[in-house]
Design a protein around this nucleic acid. Structure first.
Lengths: 150, 150
DNA sequence: TATTGTTATACTCTATAACTATA
DNA sequence: TATAGTTATAGAGTATAACAATA
């Protein structure tokens, strides 16, 4: 059936995002990575010795949730925690992490290529500016309100 | 810090979508609705007597997950299940559901307005076509691959 | 006093398998 | 034989509170 919500930007944004995420995860599956893993590896590569909390702030991941997230990648020897002072942990890629990231970057590039290919050529220059504007224009969000049984 | 992933369409898509969703949920909180609730109510309003499974297919929600989802809205007397045959359930809005949906539509309209307002005017006509292209061009997705402990 | 990393915990969302009844 | 609705269950993602150690 025709989707009656297809004229809502918010709805399309969610559907497009979900589809793209699912596709990227499928592409990354052979590397046993998920999109969030690659985001963190790319961030650490771009900002060596960034602290765990800082990385969480950039990627919008709670401090508490960074622990097991980073821990899993550390167990796989993809990144390392190094004490920055006696409180903060600096994150850095291992050799193995760098090599896997190099492969992941190719997957991401192919995925980006596929995304761009879906957009009519005349509209392509508008893709990044529009998405950036939609994101950056957003009000900093309070946390998710609980569902209450009404 | 400057986000080194900000030139990736997939990343921007996810961040923009998350920000928009969080904002919409915050706007809907006074009505004790979440974005998915409104999507279902709007769908049922546009396609009266759509079956529970059909609605799930349109919204990309598993049959199994529709049960408690619809159940919760039914408990709140926002929609009703009516037997279509002895197997399928037709969904229809109650009067209360229609009234609440009318209010929700205003919230959604304000939210859509806010989204559009974030985009430079010259790019606005490209917003819906780009998002629709990114979504509709996506390959139908197999389900999410499991994370394996590597 | 504020921040970092951490543990514990809980809720939402989503996925799969299996079952019954029905088309 | 395929589909609708359902139950049960599990996993991923994400939220909060609280704590100790440190800046």
């Amino acid at each position: 059936m025709h989707d009656p919500l297809a004229n809502l930007a918010g709805y399309l944004l969610r559907r497009a995002s979900n589809a793209a995420l699912a596709e990227l995860n499928a592409r990354l599956a052979p590397l046993e990575l998920r999109h969030a893993d690659v985001a963190l590896l790319m961030l650490v590569a771009a900002a060596p010795a960034i602290s765990q909390s800082q990385a969480g702030r950039v990627l919008d991941i709670q401090r508490a949730n960074m622990v097991s997230f980073v821990g899993r990648l550390e167990e796989r020897s993809l990144l390392r925690r190094r004490p920055l002072d006696r409180r903060s942990q600096a994150l850095e890629l291992t050799g193995r992490g760098r090599r896997l990231l190099a492969r992941a970057r190719q997957v991401v590039a192919a995925h980006e290529q596929a995304l761009r290919g879906r957009v009519p050529e005349s509209l392509r220059p508008a893709v990044l500016p529009i998405l950036a504007a939609l994101w950056q224009g957003a009000a900093p969000q309070r946390r998710r309100p609980r569902r209450s049984a009404a």
